[in-house]
């Protein structure tokens, strides 16, 4: 017990130093910690360059990466409680395919800014899944997952059509986008995404204890005085808002919202009062570390979505084998 408590403390304590230190990681080797200190004291030669790189390029990227990671993890955690299923995440509802199609359409036709189009179609896909599954004012979990799969299929086909008719240059940027693209982070993107990312995450934070009750089942929630339908709808909207904004600014970071909540639960246990805040901090820090690593390979940056899977997959499997993950059946 004491050991996991120490890990939790460590996760919270290390978050801020990692955010700060991440400012000094990147392909511009001359803008490291030492150069920044020098620049602060008015020493060194290219002070302006150092400040520009750190404040205008790295700071927005670091903050955006942290927020995206935290929001994806928190959304995944809440979706798993809502569906009473540890194998779901926002992408199950068709979010990623919808957003990928939206981005591709915008890249191919320039009808809307890429992020906005991704956001709109991400929301559309989740909305479609939700309304297709709705019958007699209730949404059965199985129908929702089924309609999510179907909506995903539809948008994947539409994406293929857009790709098929795009010229090679545009095709390349579409493929890049779908692999996750934090290297295009900017202050503008940060400003655009910060509000929905935080609003979605904060809503889930407020509902974190109620998620325990929702995870017990509808009858249990209803007979304890909670409208399960209303709470689930609020949590779904919050998770979709947060994760579609994440997809809109960072592309598809596959399975992040599935893996992180599992890792976090190994430390915090399933009680969402502890798990939700820990997901946000750990999800943010972990994505930041992955991004730091990917930025350290100067000149050759691996897209974050690909890198996350390559790193997160084995980490997850290792932890699953090593710890008793706690799923009995």
């Amino acid at each position: 017990m004491m050991k996991t408590r120490n890990v939790i403390t460590l996760i919270y304590v290390l978050a801020l130093p990692i955010i700060v230190l991440s400012l000094f990681v990147g392909p511009t080797q001359s803008a490291g910690l030492g150069a920044w200190m020098d620049a602060l004291w008015g020493r060194g030669t290219n002070t302006d360059l150092v400040f520009t790189v750190i404040y205008q390029i790295r700071l927005p990227r670091v903050l955006l990466t942290f927020l995206v990671g935290g929001a994806l993890a928190v959304s995944g955690c809440s979706i798993q409680a809502v569906f009473r299923n540890p194998l779901t995440d926002p992408y199950i509802l068709g979010l990623s395919s919808g957003a990928a199609f939206g981005a591709a359409l915008a890249l191919a036709t320039a009808w809307l800014p890429v992020q906005l189009s991704a956001f709109v179609f991400g929301l559309t896909a989740v909305g479609m899944s939700f309304f297709m599954a709705r019958k007699n004012n209730t949404v059965a979990i199985v129908s929702l997952i089924l309609s999510g799969i179907i909506v995903s299929g539809i948008f994947t086909s539409l994406l293929a059509i857009v790709q098929y008719f795009s010229d090679p240059f545009r095709l390349q940027s579409i493929v890049h986008w779908t692999m996750g693209n934090l290297h295009l982070a900017s202050a503008t993107k940060l400003k655009m995404a910060v509000f929905p990312l935080l609003l979605g995450s904060a809503t889930i934070f407020v509902y974190r204890w109620r998620m325990n009750l929702i995870a017990l089942g509808d009858d249990e929630a209803r007979s304890s005085g909670i409208h399960p339908g209303r709470d689930k709808a609020i949590l779904l909207i919050a998770a979709t808002l947060a994760s579609s904004s994440a997809v809109a600014v960072a592309g598809i970071i596959g399975l992040y919202g599935l893996i992180v909540p599992h890792i976090v639960r190994m430390f915090s246990g399933p009680d969402n009062r502890q798990a939700v805040p820990l997901n946000f901090v750990f999800g943010g820090t972990f994505l930041l570390l992955i991004d730091d690593l990917s930025r350290s390979f100067a000149g050759l940056e691996i897209p974050i979505g690909v890198f996350t899977m390559l790193l997160g997959g084995p980490v997850f499997i290792y932890l699953m084998k090593k710890n008793n993950i706690g799923w009995n059946d």
Binding site: A81, R84, N85, P86, N212, A215, L216, G217, D219, E220, G269, P270, D271, G326, W327, N328
Partner: peptide
Amino acid sequence: NQQHQAVFPF
């Protein structure tokens, strides 16, 4: 309820 299926190890 008559029966209850636990999903998470609360």
